[in-house]
Simulated scan of single mutants.
Amino acid sequence: PSLASANAPLSLAPQAESSAAPEPPVRVATTSPNAVQPAPNAGAASGGYLVQISSQRSEADAQASFRALQSKFPSVLGSRAPVIRRADLGEKGIYYRAMVGPFGSHEEASQFCVSLKSAGGQCVAQRN
């Protein structure tokens, strides 16, 4: 339950609600310390770039995958907070993408991705 609530401020729906009812994101942030950092990033990410590092069938698996990759590549991902995005791929189903960002330019996102690949990881830089 705390993993799902930690990502609530990162989805598009809660952001839309935040202007009408600012209390739900505040409650989520106070119940989960991990939500405090991603919440400001979610707003800043609106015009930036993100780097996808994993895609899983459930939000919990995306969180677990991010934590595993963070442990495997601490020099690149150690201080990063995940941005989990839901992606509806039609007939392929719903996936949850573990992403890092936002980055101010495609070049910054690409440089981060190159660093992760150099360490042995996989990633894709993309516009938010």
Rank of each mutant, 00 (worst) to 15 (best):
A13W: 12
P14L: 13
Q15N: 09
A16C: 08
A16D: 12
E17V: 15
E17D: 09
E17G: 05
S18K: 12
S19E: 15
A21K: 13
P22C: 13
R27W: 10
R27T: 09
V28W: 09
V28P: 00
A29M: 15
A29P: 00
T30H: 05
T30Q: 10
S32N: 15
N34H: 06
A35Q: 06
V36M: 07
P38C: 10
P40M: 10
P40R: 12
P40W: 10
P40C: 03
A45F: 03
S46A: 09
G47H: 13
V51I: 04
S54E: 11
S55L: 04
S55R: 11
Q56G: 01
Q56E: 14
Q56P: 00
R57N: 04
S58E: 03
S58D: 06
E59W: 00
A60I: 04
Q63G: 00
A64G: 06
F66Q: 05
A68G: 10
L69F: 04
S71M: 12
K72P: 00
G78Y: 15
G78V: 07
G78C: 14
R80W: 08
R80E: 15
R80V: 05
A81W: 06
A81L: 05
P82R: 05
P82N: 04
V83D: 02
I84C: 01
I84N: 02
R85N: 07
A87S: 13
A87F: 03
G90N: 07
E91N: 09
K92F: 04
Y95F: 15
R97V: 12
M99P: 01
F103Q: 02
F103H: 05
G104I: 00
E107A: 13
E108P: 00
A109S: 14
F112I: 04
V114M: 07
S115P: 00
K117C: 01
A119I: 04
A119L: 05
